[in-house]
Write a protein that binds this DNA or RNA. Structure first.
Lengths: 133, 133
DNA sequence: TTCTTATTGATAATGATTCTCATGAAGATT
DNA sequence: AATCTTCATGAGAATCATTATCAATAAGAA
């Protein structure tokens, strides 16, 4: 029921971890699959899915839904957030902000550990406002 | 290209808007479909999908990916955020926080309008920490 | 009322994700 | 190093959310 077992250290898990460490953007399972394949260290698609899910469950990855599919990225205490245009999809990365401290504070308040968080702001960018005439 | 046309006011769109106004939680397309059906105002599933997508594009809905599928909720300038346990899924609603002001500030800075935002904090809750022994 | 055109609904198609199960590798034990 | 147990992998099929197709219908303008 409550297994303390760590996942086995396999070639597949290692290359997936290495790959995620080498990229900075969110990656879909398919993108990871393709990336590993072109890197010459292919891993089957089901295994990519299983490993990503396992890593996310362990708190090692952030999940974000992009365009109808799950995307993953290494957890980092100081990652950035996004400001995305609802109309054209243009994205601006936001580095500063009070979100980190706020997340840490509420987590502590409720006794949660292994915190990660997602903050996405959506709106209409100036260009698309102009085009709406 | 840049159409200013408003969507037609149909029975289906009206009952979907009414329904979303009557619930507070995020709703998947399937949940909306079921809710409308039990309410005696059924709408076909493709139309539910189309209408939700259209409303989201217009900035009337927030989208959040829950458990592998898109969920929608009426936009509100004073909605809350969530603290979710990665292990058991328990969710705590967070009412306060500096996120609203921060989102408004960066939006203004980049000239974005019709702002909405999503902030989700994930972690391991006290109970699941204990069970991990 | 009539006309034009967007919207609907039934259905099929798509595409991401998960399941099944036989095979192979990790890690423990000798 | 050889053996054993068990978990992880891979190929393929299955599932399920979502989207496309297209004929029929209803909104809104004339």
């Amino acid at each position: 029921m409550t297994s303390t077992d760590l996942p086995r250290r396999t070639r597949q898990r290692e290359v997936i971890e290495t790959y995620l460490g080498s990229v900075d953007e969110f990656q879909s399972a398919q993108q990871v699959y393709d990336g590993l394949r072109t890197a010459g260290t292919p891993v089957s698609l089901p295994t990519v899915y299983r490993t990503l899910a396992s890593m996310a469950e362990g708190g090692d990855l952030d999940i974000l839904s992009i365009d109808g599919m799950a995307s993953y990225r290494q957890c980092s205490p100081h990652h950035h957030h996004h400001l995305t245009c609802r109309s054209c999809g243009r994205t601006i990365e936001l580095m500063e902000g009070p979100v980190e401290e706020w997340a840490a504070r509420v987590a502590k308040q409720y006794g949660f550990t292994q915190i990660s968080h997602i903050s996405e702001v959506r709106g209409t960018c100036p260009k698309c406002q102009a085009e709406e005439s």
